[in-house]
């Protein structure tokens, strides 16, 4: 094994181009487990922790460009206002020690259907910026995952950053597990209200081969809110609207039975989380959080 230690981004891309089999390592919270248990013996480890650019984020008017190597702890501390859904999701990852090292770049790189960042990114609206010596491309996060632990990266590509829409309304994230800390999601759900565009977006984790959006549910709710004048009135939601939204969210799942839970349980739990998180976000919107943000 060889340990490659690029000091900057260009150098990292050059190293990846020269050694396409090199396994990038950021926080190491996935990679090192595989190496410790001999599940993986890469020829090259490509350490990204020295690439300073990856550990930075910058906010513009509408988006945050989050470097692939910003650890969860910093997202929680520094980006709670801009990215509330992602910050909530980050807070449920592992333990403080894991959050101090683990990164969204690593979560995307691992592409586990249970990755907690994914539902939050789907709901907020995000694009993954990937690069190689050949150039840069931006991939909508819904097109990033191609299967269980598979993604669209070419062998010479690295994740540079994620461009995430800044919250313009309330966002929530919820996760079902056996306890509060250190738990892989049985399933997870994220919802974001986007008052500026008068849309609602969702993200579901661990209930399909890849993280998915419940698009039908989003469209249904968006139309119902629009037609009923809810964005302007801030009136309580009709129970029938909530019920239909919940059904459509549960229906968007393609879950499996596994040791963590059955498919039926996951579908049910996603429905429960959809109802609760929609309730919380709509309450927050009604109380003015979202409507103030809209005017700002």
């Amino acid at each position: 094994m060889d340990f490659l230690r690029p000091a900057g981004w260009e150098e990292a891309l050059a190293a990846k181009a020269e050694h396409p089999t090199a396994v990038p390592i950021a926080g190491g919270t996935d990679v090192m487990v595989e190496i410790n248990f001999d599940h993986r013996r890469p020829e090259y480890l490509l350490d990204l922790t020295r690439v300073a650019e990856l550990a930075e984020w910058e906010a513009t008017d509408r988006t945050v460009r989050l470097g692939a190597g910003v650890p969860y702890t910093r997202i929680i501390e520094e980006l709670r206002t801009e990215l509330p859904g992602l910050a909530l999701a980050a807070h449920t990852v592992g333990s403080p020690q894991i959050r101090n090292r683990g990164t969204v770049g690593g979560n995307l790189g691992a592409a586990s259907p249970a990755g907690d960042a994914h539902p939050a990114l789907l709901a907020a609206g995000a694009e993954v910026e990937v690069a190689s010596v050949r150039g840069t491309r931006r991939i909508p996060v819904e097109e990033f995952f191609t299967g269980v632990k598979r993604h669209v990266l070419e062998p010479d590509e690295l994740i540079r950053a994620v461009h995430i829409r800044r919250a313009d309304g309330p966002q929530q994230f919820s996760k079902v597990g056996t306890r509060n800390a250190m738990v892989i999601a049985v399933c997870a759900f994220a919802v974001a209200l986007h008052p500026r565009t008068r849309t609602v977006r969702t993200g579901i984790g661990s209930a399909a081969p890849t993280p998915v959006r419940a698009r039908e549910a989003e469209e249904f709710l968006g139309a119902a809110l629009d037609e009923g004048g809810f964005w302007d009135s801030g009136a309580p939601l009709d129970p029938s609207v909530v019920r239909r939204f919940v059904e459509l969210c549960a229906g968007a799942c393609r879950p499996i039975d596994d040791v963590r839970g059955t498919a039926a349980y996951r579908r049910h739990a996603v429905g429960v989380m959809a109802r609760r998180t929609l309730g919380w976000t709509w309450e927050a919107y009604r109380e003015g959080e979202g409507r103030t943000a809209q005017c700002a």
Binding site: T29, I35, D47, I98, N100, R101
Partner: peptide
């Protein structure tokens, strides 16, 4: 295995030596 790495508590078992 918790240690401080540049001040930050981490699991030393998940840090590659070269890091």
């Amino acid at each position: 295995c918790t240690v401080r790495l540049d001040g930050v508590p981490v699991c030393a078992c998940l840090v590659a030596a070269g890091q």
